[in-house]
Computed example of a mutant assay.
Amino acid sequence: MTAGDTGAPLSVVLAGGGSAGHVNPLLATADALRRRVPDATISVLGTAEGLEQRLVPDRGYPLTVVPKVPFPRRPGAAAVRFPGSLGRAVGAALAAIRAVDADVVVGFGGYVATPAYLAARRAGVPIVIHEQNARPGLANRLGSRFTRAVATTFASTALPGAKRVGMPLRAEIRDLDRAAARPEGLTHFGLAADRPTLLVFGGSLGAARLNAAFSAAAADLLAAGVQVLHLTGAGKDVDAPQTSATGARYVALPYTDRMELAYAVADLAVCRAGAGTVCELAAVGLPAVYVPLPIGNGEQRLNAADLVAAGGGLVAEDAQVDAGWVRGTVLPLVTDADRLATMAAAAAAHGERDADDQLVDLILAAAGRA
């Protein structure tokens, strides 16, 4: 069956995994495909260790495990083993692609994407790539050599021939009306309707720097009448007063599975600058102070750069985040309703809510089904 033959249902293989940054846009795209092409066969290639091992089957998609093959960064035993390990991973991906007679392979980067791209090229199956981060990873830099169908989240991403579509978002975020959902969110988290609300979070594992700074400044925030929703990260607690004489509450939770409601109640967020976080906050029009992770290749700062330049957020250095910074920078901002309204409008104007559909359009075109 050729890619342009419409005599059989469309068959799409999605490849990516490891971190939420790869898995979440993959699942959002799968859901958009299922909505747009209900009879499509959708399969996923992932690793045995990543979040996809749980999230993909939970969402109703079959997962085929491909061996995880990290690219060796320096000479050594891993470099010697790499060609054989990569060959086995490509073989597993090729078998999976052929088993479902794939019309197109869509990669989101990560450990499994490189074998998927090499296998698709060997099988003569069209490739579509989505790069989440401002600075592209090794897998997508390689894959972009094999296809002209390259989509990016950020305009600044350097991949040849790339089209900016934004970040595919799950429906709960894509369709969120913050004002309409706010009453439900306030009830869900036990917060008041008449107070400025600060949302602090550092991802599923939390951010020790944010946790320490905001717990130390909690009394000052509450005294100013600011209520706080602080998602500390799984297994992490903070020592903060829960209430004050003003009646404001400090609600600390390890995580929430209703992140859309957290966005709905917040007037300002303080958070890391992962690509998914930046794009979600922009899409829903929530202003934020981004504190990029101070390790890695600096991609988090790049992720937030365009949104900050557009006026939808601010950026702060990790090293400057302490209780004094919270009092001197965050507290005046979260209580400045006019400035927050201006930032919210700028964020919403910059955000993309239809990236999933734009990516599906590229997929259908590559498969000859446009």
Rank of each mutant, 00 (worst) to 15 (best):
139 A>R: 08
356 D>Y: 12
86 L>F: 05
172 E>P: 04
261 L>W: 10
62 P>R: 07
247 G>K: 09
266 A>N: 08
126 P>A: 11
174 R>K: 13
165 V>P: 08
264 A>Q: 10
141 R>K: 13
216 A>Y: 02
243 T>C: 05
276 G>A: 10
278 V>H: 01
88 R>G: 04
211 N>C: 05
268 L>S: 05
348 A>F: 09
61 Y>H: 11
64 T>A: 13
92 A>K: 15
23 V>Q: 00
93 A>I: 13
223 A>L: 06
363 I>R: 14
272 R>L: 05
352 E>K: 15
191 L>V: 14
281 L>I: 10
110 G>E: 02
262 A>F: 08
192 A>P: 08
53 Q>D: 05
147 T>G: 02
215 S>H: 07
181 A>I: 09
15 A>K: 07
196 P>W: 09
98 R>N: 14
93 A>S: 12
259 M>L: 15
52 E>C: 02
69 V>R: 14
272 R>V: 02
3 A>T: 13
278 V>M: 00
270 V>C: 04
126 P>Q: 11
31 D>H: 13
281 L>W: 03
157 T>E: 00
281 L>S: 03
258 R>G: 02
321 V>P: 01
21 G>P: 01
349 A>P: 06
162 A>T: 09
286 L>N: 04
12 V>H: 12
260 E>M: 11
338 D>K: 13
234 A>T: 15
279 C>Y: 04
327 R>Q: 09
108 F>A: 03
332 P>W: 02
280 E>Q: 13
191 L>S: 10
84 G>W: 13
141 R>G: 06
343 M>H: 06
200 V>R: 14
361 D>P: 07
292 P>D: 01
275 A>M: 02
306 D>R: 05
31 D>E: 14
337 A>F: 06
122 R>T: 15
90 V>S: 00
238 V>L: 05
153 T>M: 00
291 V>Y: 06
